[in-house]
Simulated scan of single mutants.
Amino acid sequence: MIETPHTHRTGRYERQSKGYLAFIPGTLPPDPPVKLDTNLENAHRRAEIALHKLDGVIGVLPEPNLFVMMYIRLEAVLSSRIEGTQSTLQDVLGAEVKLFRTEYKNDVYEVINYIAAMQLGIEKVKDGPINTSLIKDIHRVLLKDIRGSRLDPGEFRSTQNWIGPEGCSIYEASFVPPPPNQVVQHICALDRFVNTRGDLPLLVKVGLTHAQFESIHPFRDGNGRVGRLIVTLMLYQNRVLQHPVLYLSWYFNIHRLEYYQKLQEVQNTGNWENWLVFFLGAVETVSKQAISTVKSILAMRERDRHWINENFGRSTANAHHVLDRLYVFPSISVNEVRELTSMSYDSSKILIERMVQGGLLVEHTGYARNRRFLLYKYVELFDAD
């Protein structure tokens, strides 16, 4: 906790009328500029190489769009988990087909909103900027009809917020962002930075943007989730990746304490470089993890297709059709198979039963009726801590 006013390159701490200190962020790019020393340059080079390899691997997927939604769901689960939610990827998949067997029902709704917010953002950045209007729209979707929905969804805060242990007062807070009457000016300055071409490497620019957004903390709730979502959107908009399959929240969740410490170090000491090394390390590590996952998906899909070719006879084409559908959404019912293939109910049931017997599908509701079947090994590739 900062106890005395001071100024450094990322901003300054100012005593407010009620006696607490609030952080007033400076503008970007930093002044003096980010020092691209050997450590930071090496981290940047490794991150760029890993991202390039990931983009190449995604490019050889037979139908990349089949798999993108699973990555989006995973990022949503993990980004929300950083904020304390307990839902899993399987909980979310169940909720998408109206199965609410989990004790974390409210958490699941938060994750589903995150998915919707990311889909909105991905669609809008295809031909539009990442600006204050988009950020507000994303936030509005993120907090729709969940806890926090009374905290002004889609509107910048009009009250002072702070970060610290649960129940702490503003005087005990570990961080107090700028007062509400300054939020708009700081967000507009960040908007200009994001949408102005400059000399900074893109990954460095993305890392700076994320930390700056968290320093401004423009909303009453949901700042962390929006800030991490902006990272994904910046990478996708700038075509660093052809598809949004980089789930940095996986790394931030595992290294949660260090993640918060590095952000706070920026605010307290002005050390952009340490934060950027951490951020670039996250990009490198998650890119490598995603490459491994994609390779596992490819191998699994080929095994599944080979098994279908060997075991389904005249139903082979329909079984492949079902398999492709399962890689988009890995849960299916007999009635959905019937609608997908135009087979009879009995034939659809037989096809599902063959897939269960062959270990391809697992029944995951426990119901006697209205059962659903999960491509479990596929989900297992993603649903790991």
Results as ranks from 00 to 15, higher is better:
R303T: 06
H306W: 11
P33Q: 09
K18C: 03
Y251C: 05
N268V: 13
T232Y: 03
H6C: 13
V57A: 05
N274Y: 03
V184S: 10
D37L: 10
K349L: 15
L54V: 05
N106M: 09
L208R: 04
L323N: 02
P29N: 09
N309P: 05
E41W: 09
T232K: 07
A47P: 01
N268T: 13
V379M: 07
L229H: 12
N271K: 08
R157A: 06
L298K: 09
A50W: 01
F312N: 04
A116Q: 15
S79E: 01
F373S: 00
G222M: 03
Q212G: 10
G167R: 02
G19T: 03
Y378V: 12
D145G: 07
R228A: 07
P64M: 04
V206R: 05
N65H: 11
V125S: 04
M70L: 11
L202F: 11
I352D: 01
F278W: 04
D324W: 06
E166S: 14
L298G: 08
R81Q: 08
L28Y: 07
L142F: 07
A173Y: 02
T365G: 01
T293V: 15
R12S: 14
Q264R: 15
R301G: 07
P32T: 11
I297L: 14
R239V: 13
E336A: 08
I163D: 01
F278K: 00
A290Q: 08
R192L: 02
I308P: 00
F23N: 00
T10S: 15
A282I: 01
P177I: 01
N65E: 13
M355D: 04
L200D: 12
V92C: 08
A43T: 03
T316F: 01
Y260D: 07
D346T: 14
A368T: 15
E48W: 08
N106L: 12
K144C: 10
L143D: 02
R256E: 08
I135H: 00
A299I: 03
R140C: 05
L28V: 08
L351N: 09
Q289S: 08
V337N: 01
I352E: 00
R220T: 13
V204W: 00
S296Y: 12
A117R: 06
Y247E: 11
N223L: 06
E96D: 15
V266D: 02
I216V: 08
L323M: 14
P62M: 06
F219K: 03
F175E: 01
V111E: 05
I146A: 11
K126H: 13
G121D: 09
F252S: 10
R325M: 07
V277W: 05
D221Q: 15
H186P: 04
E110V: 02
L203D: 02
E258L: 12
A384F: 04
V277R: 11
